[in-house]
Computed example of a mutant assay.
Amino acid sequence: MLSLGGMGIVVMGVFGGYLLAGGKMSVIIKALPFEFMMIGGAALGALLIANSMKVVKQTFGGVLRVIKGPKWKQKDYQDLLCLLYALANVYKKKGALGLEQHVEQPSESQIFQTYPKVLNDHFACAMICDTLRMMTLNLEDPHQIDDYIDRLLEKHHHEDMQGAQALQTTADALPALGIVAAVLGVIKTMASINEPPEVLGKLIGGALVGTFLGVFLAYGFVGPLSSRLSQIVEDDSRFYHVIKDVLVAIAQGAGPQLAVEIGRGNVPTAVQPSFFDLEQAVEQAPAVT
């Protein structure tokens, strides 16, 4: 919602200042649909040329992510730590065989079913289950597990950033596309050079709307959207880094309580559950049979 408010301020600030300075909207309104068609169409076409359909969908989905904000809230981090505590506790008490039933079919696991948002996140669920499955196969070297998860995180982060990068590329292109639209407007004006000055003035004004619109969209909307989407990707990635911290701690032999406390310490401050809130949540979690 903050992003939508910011967009409103951009529009009111630019056009409000223009009107207060004595500007008239009639020229802009008349030229805007055609200039937007040229600039917006060229930008969309360039986006399709430069990216796969997967990245294009991710780009438009990224705009919705900006409006919604980061995916993971404080309650989600608390649930994640409770889930990892329960798995670590099973691993400690029952060993690899006790853990196997939970990591082989997480959708049927009593532990995972208690925390559906984590279960429904494919990457988080797969990273937890695959890493613990490897540990049940006697891969218990913490350094190997650390390297393995780092490669997973790097791959996921690279793929998740593609939408933001595509938006930024589009933002970089918009001013130039605005110039293209303006040049076409100048060509149209030159073809009417025998018209009276008042007609030529309106044609030139309409041509300049193209330059204005390209710069306005680039720096007022698309560029900031790309920047905010990059921030959200970074914020959401911290969730997976907490998973890594807890799993590596388990591989190093830390007990369930210490392992989740290590993970809790690396949760972003703004959404970090307190020690006592997490302890209470763990105590209130359903018992695993």
Rank of each mutant, 00 (worst) to 15 (best):
G220C: 01
A182G: 10
P175N: 03
V233N: 05
L203E: 15
G263T: 02
A259C: 09
E234Y: 07
D236F: 15
A181D: 01
L200F: 10
A259Q: 02
V183E: 05
R228H: 14
G223T: 02
G253D: 04
T211Q: 04
P175H: 06
I187H: 06
T189L: 15
G201R: 14
V222L: 05
I243Q: 06
V186I: 15
L208Y: 10
G214R: 11
E198S: 13
V222P: 07
V199E: 02
L184V: 13
E198K: 05
P197G: 09
L184M: 14
I179F: 09
I187T: 09
A249N: 06
H241Y: 09
L184H: 07
Q231R: 15
F239I: 00
G185L: 08
G205S: 03
L217H: 07
G205C: 08
V248M: 04
G263P: 15
V246S: 03
G263R: 01
N266P: 05
P196G: 06
R238S: 12
F212N: 12
V246G: 05
V260W: 02
E198Q: 14
S227L: 13
D236L: 11
G201P: 02
I243P: 03
V222Q: 00
Y240F: 14
G263A: 02
L177S: 00
L208S: 02
E261C: 06
I193P: 06
D245Q: 08
V222C: 03
V199Y: 06
D236I: 12
V267D: 00
N194W: 08
D245N: 08
A191F: 13
L174M: 11
G214Y: 14
T189N: 12
N266K: 03
A182N: 13
D245T: 08
G255A: 12
G210F: 04
R264A: 11
A207S: 05
S230K: 13
V180E: 03
I262N: 07
A181V: 03
M190G: 04
V248W: 00
G255K: 03
Y219G: 15
V260A: 05
K244T: 01
L225W: 03
R228K: 14
A182V: 05
P196S: 09
I232Q: 08
N266H: 14
L213H: 11
H241I: 08
L203M: 14
V233M: 07
K188F: 06
P197K: 00
L258V: 12
Q257L: 14
G265Q: 08
L225Y: 06
G210Q: 02
E234P: 04
L217G: 10
V233Y: 13
L203C: 07
V183R: 11
G220L: 00
G201I: 01
A249H: 10
V246L: 01
V186T: 08
V180M: 10
Q257H: 11
A254Y: 15
L258H: 11
S230R: 11
L217N: 09
A249C: 06
Q257D: 13
V248Q: 10
G214P: 06
I232E: 05
A191S: 13
M190I: 13
V222H: 03
I204F: 05
A173F: 04
Y219I: 09
V233R: 06
P175Q: 02
A218Y: 00
R238T: 15
D236A: 09
N266Y: 05
M190T: 11
G220D: 15
E261R: 02
V246A: 00
D235I: 08
E261A: 05
L229F: 07
L200C: 09
R264L: 01
A207E: 04
I204H: 08
